[in-house]
Amino acid sequence: MKFKAIIAALVIASSIVSCEKDDPVIPNEPELIANVTLTLTPEAGGEDVVFHWHDENGDGVVDDSEKTEGSLDSNTVYTTVISLNGEDEDHHEEEEEEHEEEGEEHDHEHGDDIDAEVKEEGTEHQFFYTHQIDGLTVLYTDKDENGKPIGLETTFTTGESYTGGAVKIVLRHEPNKFAEGVANGDVTNAGGENDVDITFDLGLNR
């Protein structure tokens, strides 16, 4: 008897509590770096060379087809800017269209101004451009509060012997910017953790 009563009580109790989990609130992902854009502008004038890496799904796998690469001239000085952001405009539009179709509101955003965050926390960040390309020199042209480079702005200088090759771009968070060689762009002693770690193949315009 008692057990029947208990079972009945349990059944009632379980019918009161819900059987379906509410839809979770989808978090905003302000830190997500979806795009890395490296823009090289020839100092003497000419067309920009743009390298781009798009990775929409955050920690998901990068689709290599979303990578855009370009070629540089030899004997040229390029004023170079690297830019990070959450999503490009195209994507926003695409997404809004999709949401409109579904009759939903656009309810997630990605950080658009990661460059500003990196700049503001310049003492805690540094870009490293590592390469073994003959005839290519990369120099920092920006500085943080301590006079150490950040690497958002650089110059890429190609010489006569420039033939192209791979440049590995690493953004380190909380590196030791005072360690030996770090201010000159040597990542070896920097420490810290990677926010960005990608490789672009630089071509040569013949």
């Binding site: 819900s18 379906e20 609130v25 978090p27 905003n28 992902e29």
Partner: peptide
Amino acid sequence: NDPETGILPLIPDYLSHQI
């Protein structure tokens, strides 16, 4: 999960009944 984290959760929201 707390949605204020700004990161997609490692494990999802769920509820369970066990008898």
